[in-house]
């Protein structure tokens, strides 16, 4: 089985600053892969290259089997992306947002109508169906945003800090949606600043100054660093003891 993502010495330079420095890794199909790092470590830049939004300066990468230099349009059709900044239209209703994105993804009208029902029902959002998105609580927006990012059944979904600021129950409901998507075979590539969420992932990588400083299962990383939690692993890697 081909991996969902492969990179080989993938690099991005801005002028004389190397934001992503020869990163090499693979993400398996159906895996929940946590992509961690400090602010400015290069996570977003790396993610944008994998999404086909930013052209690499060097190295190779393939996403869903497509090349990040030559096949960016194909990549975009095979992935879902939930950006850090909320990406739904605030002045459309919940229903209209689903219809709009269904259209953008090129789903047939019948399928869109089915999805509107299924998605609103699945999220238990019937009461909000005709409410403008700007008036619904943040937790709902994020769950809706995730559902829309995967409504075209992409092979891989990229989530850039999807749970910032939401309450602890909603944060867990969100992760249950991630577990569900992964249990159905979808590959999930996720960044987060919550280190307890890193432990929900099958494997995590930790970026430091543009490089991948560690990559393994959370348990193995904790053993390797003699740490009690992923937070300790993270602190050890990003702030080495003097």
């Amino acid at each position: 089985m081909l991996p969902a993502i492969t990179t080989d010495k993938l690099t991005k330079r801005f002028g004389d600053f190397t934001a992503v420095d020869q990163i090499t890794f693979e993400v398996n199909k159906g895996e929940i892969f946590g992509f961690l790092g400090a602010n400015g470590a290069g996570k977003t830049t790396a993610m944008r290259m994998l999404n086909g939004l930013s052209r690499p300066s060097g190295g190779q990468a393939a996403v869903a089997g497509f090349d990040v230099y030559r096949e960016t349009e194909k990549i975009k059709k095979h992935i879902g992306y939930m950006s850090q900044k909320f990406s739904l239209y605030e002045d459309l209703t919940v229903r209209e947002n689903i219809q709009f994105y269904g259209g953008i993804y090129g789903l047939p009208g019948k399928e869109i109508r089915r999805q509107v029902q299924e998605l609103i029902g699945g999220l238990g959002m019937q009461a909000y169906a005709n409410t403008l998105v700007k008036s619904i609580p943040l937790g709902w927006k994020q769950k809706l945003s995730f559902s829309i990012a995967i409504m075209h059944r992409p092979e891989i979904v990229f989530l850039d800090e999807p749970t910032g600021g939401v309450d602890p129950i909603t944060r867990r409901q969100f992760w249950e949606m991630i577990y569900k998507a992964a249990s159905e075979g979808m590959t999930v590539f996720v960044t987060t600043h919550y280190m307890d969420e890193a432990e929900y992932c099958d494997r995590v990588s930790i970026m430091v100054d543009g490089r991948i400083a560690a990559l393994d299962r959370p348990r193995a990383l904790k053993e390797q660093f003699g740490a009690g939690s992923m937070n300790d692993v993270f602190l050890q890697l990003t702030r080495p003891k003097p």
Binding site: N39, G165, H193, N231, T238, R239
Partner: peptide, 13 residues
């Protein structure tokens, strides 16, 4: 008001 939102764990600490 939320001085550490969106800030990584090291900077938060």
């Amino acid at each position: 008001d939320e001085p550490t939102t969106g800030v990584d764990p090291v900077s938060r600490q």
